[in-house]
């Protein structure tokens, strides 16, 4: 059965790849370096590289190519910023059994956690956030980063341990 080759140079295919991966790669770089604008630039450059080289890259390899290019770009162009995440505040209800003290404490806790995450090592933070926010399994993360599942598990363990240490007792 002669299988038709999918051509990355075709606009439809290219757009499909973009819709499937651009956002994910962007968040991945963002979790690592904490600079959304930079992450977006890197995504743009990676996809432009894919476009320029589309004839040389087979469809099946496009994803890993994109991750590789994005990763290389982020390493070579290293201007680190502390990750500061935005978070949803608990909705203000007109009737609430949560006391103002509780809400204050919660805000304090969120801020503390935010700083603690920002202070994690890049490698721990990217794994932690990919797993917790992006809901990626260890296996998916391992594939993304090109490391073993065991290594992902280790980083996750260390990330949690460090967060707990930095936040202290509540």
């Amino acid at each position: 059965m002669p299988q038709e080759k999918i051509n990355v140079c075709e606009e439809k295919v290219y757009e499909q790849l973009y819709r499937a991966h651009a956002e994910k790669i962007c968040y991945y770089i963002y979790y690592k370096y904490g600079d959304m604008e930079k992450a977006q630039d890197i995504v743009q450059d990676s996809f432009a590289k894919l476009w320029v080289n589309c004839s040389k890259i087979i469809f099946e390899a496009a994803k890993s190519y994109l991750y590789k290019v994005a990763n290389n770009a982020s390493i070579s162009d290293y201007a680190h910023q502390k990750v500061v995440l935005k978070y949803k505040t608990t909705e203000q209800k007109s009737y609430t059994n949560e006391s103002p003290e509780f809400q204050m404490e919660e805000k304090e806790f969120m801020d503390k956690l935010n700083t603690a995450i920002g202070n994690l090592k890049d490698k721990q933070r990217e794994v932690f956030l990919l797993n917790r926010i992006e809901k990626k399994t260890y296996k998916e993360i391992a594939e993304m980063l090109g490391i073993s599942v065991k290594a992902v598990e280790k980083r996750m363990h260390l990330a949690l341990l460090n967060l707990r240490k930095r936040i202290g007792d509540i």
Binding site: Y27, Y30, M36, L85, K86, Y87, K88, F109, M110, L113, N114, I117, F128, R132, I133
Partner: peptide, 8 residues
């Protein structure tokens, strides 16, 4: 608490 974080 981590669940509450939003991505840009």
């Amino acid at each position: 608490a981590t669940e509450k974080f939003e991505r840009p």
